[in-house]
């Protein structure tokens, strides 16, 4: 059964400040939503709440059609935050091999090999270098390769294309389209157009209601 990500009446606060309240949307397999809005409007907070890294104030995030052994929706999610979650001291291959083996694959899918993932982000041939030697854009691309080595149906992407050039933007749009075509779900917070067909969720800032535009 294909999964559906159901978000109902979600509110979150940081410290004493209400960041957003009453956000609801439903994403079926193959759908993407792009979260837009000015700086500080709560895009990252929304993604971290979806990833189970921040407590919700009210509302629920749940998955329909997920295997019974899944305790929390975050276990079926990939989270690509501002930081790349790669160790500078280890080589790219070592980093990716670690995440591939540590994260494992979710049901109904499997990650690609490390060489194939590095090739998919267009950086074949430099995977033997320590991660710290790469440029900011290359590091970001390698962090994307991490999305491919361990399969998760849901991708939560926070500013995925920051520090990327135009060709990497297109490449990333291609990867996202492939993931959606394979029945994945993508939630991305971004300022730049993602280059894929997606709904838009506009965050309007301090304690305001997110409205959904199709």
């Amino acid at each position: 059964m294909p999964i559906r990500l159901v978000v109902e009446g979600l509110s979150a606060q940081r410290g004493e400040d209400l960041i957003f309240h009453d956000i609801s949307f439903v994403l079926s397999a193959g759908q993407a939503v792009v979260v837009t809005g000015p700086n500080g409007s709560g895009k990252s907070t929304l993604l971290r709440v979806l990833a189970g890294l921040l407590e919700t104030l009210s509302g629920t995030v749940r998955l329909e059609g997920a295997p019974a052994e899944i305790g929390h929706p975050r276990e079926l999610c990939h989270y690509l935050g501002h930081r790349n979650a790669m160790k500078r001291e280890l080589t790219v291959t070592e980093n990716l091999a670690f995440w591939k083996s540590f994260m494992g694959d979710s049901a109904n899918g499997h990650g690609v090999g490390i060489e194939a993932a590095v090739e998919a982000v267009g950086l074949a041939g430099i995977s033997h270098l320590p991660f710290g030697y790469l440029s900011a854009g290359q590091q970001r691309r390698m962090a994307m390769a991490k999305l491919l080595v361990a399969y998760r149906p849901i991708w939560l992407l926070d500013e995925p294309t920051a520090a990327l050039d135009a060709s990497a933007d297109r490449l990333f749009a291609g990867l996202t389209t492939q993931h959606l075509a394979a029945g994945g779900i993508v939630v991305a917070a971004t300022h730049q157009p993602l280059g894929v067909e997606a709904m838009e969720l506009r965050m309007t800032g301090f304690a305001s209601v997110g409205e959904e535009l199709i």
Binding site: A51, G52, L53, E69, I70, G71, R74, E75, C77, Y79, G81, H82, R83, N84, A85, M86, K87, R88, W99, F102, M103, G104
Partner: peptide
């Protein structure tokens, strides 16, 4: 935590 790995560790089924 500084490089974001902790976020991913917190999200796993393990």
């Amino acid at each position: 935590r500084e490089d974001g790995s902790l976020d991913l560790m917190l999200m796993q089924e393990t």
